[in-house]
Design a protein around this nucleic acid. Sequence first.
RNA 1: GGGUCCGUGGUCUAGGGGUUAUGACGUCGCUCUUACAAAGCGAAGAUCGCAGGUUCAAUUCCUGCCGGACCCA
Length: 827
Amino acid sequence: MAEPKISDKRWSVDLEKKIQADHFSNDKYSDRYKFDPTSDREIFIIDTPPPYPSGTWHIGAVAQYSMIDVIARSQRLIGKEVRFPWGVDRNGINIEFTVEKKTGRKMRTYDRAEFLDICSDTIESYTQAMRQTAKRVGLSCDYENEYLTDSPEYRAISQTIFVELFKRGDIIEDLRPNIYDPVEGTTIAEAEVQRIQRMTNLCDVVWKTQDGEEIVITTTRPEMICACGVVVVHPEDERYMHLIGKTVDLPLTVSNRDSFVQIQTHPSVKMDFGSGILMVCSYGDQNDVSIFRELGMRPFPAIDLDGKMTSLSGPLSGLSVEDARVEATRLLQNEGRIKSIEEREQEVPVSERGGNPIEIILLKEWYVKQTSVLDRLSELTNQSRFIPERNRQFLHDWMDGISIDWPISRRRWYHTEVPIWYSEDRSMVVVPPKGCYVQPWRESPPTGSQVLERDSKKILGDFESLRDQLGDIVGEEKVFDTWMDSSNSNLFVSGYLNEPELFEKAFPTSIRPQGKEIVRTWLYYTILKSALLLDKPGFQNIWVDGLGMDPWGRKMSKSLGNGIDADSVLECGAGGRTGSWKIRGADGKQVTLKANKIGSECFRLWKACDAQVGDDFHINPEEIETKYYGVLTKIFNVARFASQFDTPDDLENPPELSPEDVWILAEFDHTLTTVHMAWSDIDIYNAAQSIKSFSTGIFPSHWLEMSKSRLYGGDGSATWTLHRVVRDILSAFTPICPFFTHYLSTTLYSQSSVDIREFPKIPDSCGVSEFDGFRELTAELTEFNSNVWKAKKDLGISLKSEIDGISVPINLAVFEQALREMHNLVQ
RNA sequence: GGGUCCGUGGUCUAGGGGUUAUGACGUCGCUCUUACAAAGCGAAGAUCGCAGGUUCAAUUCCUGCCGGACCCA
């Protein structure tokens, strides 16, 4: 017996960090994890969610990413050629806000080019920090080939796809009511609207019909009276039958429009809301939009692009919406037109990014047609497998609710530009050639651009030859919605345009892993793009995980004070530092959670073992440590124990094996089969559970105890079995805890488990299949061992003491010798 | 207000029409047995949210209710 080759007494976060540092600095890193598109192996491309760098990374997202890494590593382990790209999503309003906040200046006070430079400098520092966290949690991405969604290369793809869809008529421009954020000055999509509770005044306003009757209309938005197109009551409302068809005067002064409207009926009116009479304005809300459309009415634009009242509103014109509401109320009060004001809580739609109340405004914008292809989308989506299957529902629910096309143009700056120029008379447009990134607001069309008829999309010819007929061309100033860029990610990583040969065999992309909160945006828009462009499903597999919640099951948020920083968990235990988290608990009281050591390996193990994919998961650092750190200790010590016995030269061909060795190999073979199936099935939970229960349960508790005396005696069969099992456990476990298994496997077997590209299998020559009956003895064997342990406990004697009067059951006769020595049985 | 999902020992969790319902943590007891006390072994602990229904049989299927989460109007 030699000294253990593994010198550390136990697994530690410091050791983990040391191994990580070696790993990432090692030249072998890129050999290990790079992607070879020409490989003969099955190609497996992961459409990693490109994170948005905005300071700290949400711990729930880090947990999700660590599981995406488990998928990447497990697919490599079972022999696939894996592309696990590292992308960073950097377009969008977030970075614009950050810059505005940092500099204290609004975007529009800058020169456009200057503002873009500040944005790209600012986002770079966040990008670095994010990459560090990604490495710290062990993501085996291809960092050398990092892609940024704001790079010319990526934006060129977005623009090329836009041009393609524009030519086909799948992208159109139109004047439509749009959801608009007046504070940030941009259109937003349905998917970007959030609802918040806030107090508003509900006013009962007295209107007068032209024949003198007073009616009461309840509204929260008196400033919108100037945009009123019609007053409606419910068709079955007995109270108001006599009003139908009459004309009613607007209670406020207006300009440039009639000062009266008609009273009609509409089934959408809620009879029990307020007075049951509703004014329909262009546009107070989505219902107004549909009534206007239904009745074919001309809208009255009451709010301009700056969020100010238009001249239509007479005395209110030029006021902000908020001020106009106060002023309108005051005017009505002066006229004695307000019957009552009640303050009540109401849901207000606001923009997700800016948190500003949104308005609905008529604007000319670019749209991706979607309402017309929803059925086909459904069909295509049915060809993708969802993991878990039930989360398919999130997508279906969203698709069922889609009623308008997707507005993709934004009046912002740090985004991909809409790649189009207009001729002087606006009848023709110029679009850039394939693969070219353009900025029409400051550039002329590049060589190879094409001229199209604006309405018919007929190609008229080259820009160069038609230049003179266009007059002074004007570049489009608008940009894309960020999702217009990120929804190309699967195409980009699968080689669309840039690697045609790869794309041919790699599309639909192998897997889209993501959180359920962005099903309606990222997933939906990606599927829409793939369908419009290629009439194919975007993915083979769609892995939709739940959200990371606080320890009591609530969403983590700044306002609740229940957030947990990812780095604090990953660094917990490093350099002797412990972790402590003050969190507002379920009862509103502050709770302090404490942990001594977690680190990335324990964190990953926790996420892999603790809940099935797709469910929301509670993040409690205290629990992560108590439940899973011991598992690492246990497996570490099994390996350390093994390391004191010399590793046989030949671990492929077994020596003559003893029955108990064949038994454990049969058990292990069964575990490996289960794990292999689970990995193939992208089932992290079951893989993790199987490995964990075998390697912390039956293997050390039963087989190891039974085999100790043989091991110390230098028995070849026992030593071979020990090392073969430990080596293969490490391989099977490597996707979950790569650094842990890398360290142990290189120390013991001079080959890192992270380099294994074929899932381990117990050789047939071990006789596992012939002696399948051995597995049936497992229950009886463990029960026998338990009985002996219990008997010794009842007698109050130590486990090593002799015990008599216990005989080995007949079924276990093959193990008799081993069991006698294990328990020190005497007759 | 509508939709989706969820509700299993003190806590977290697996499972699923039918023998004693999985595992982990915690609790209690024992043990420093030549890998492991940052561990091991053993024990106690659940009428599987509530009420109906379907069935020979329901914790599992159906309906309603209650509670939670998320999404939408």
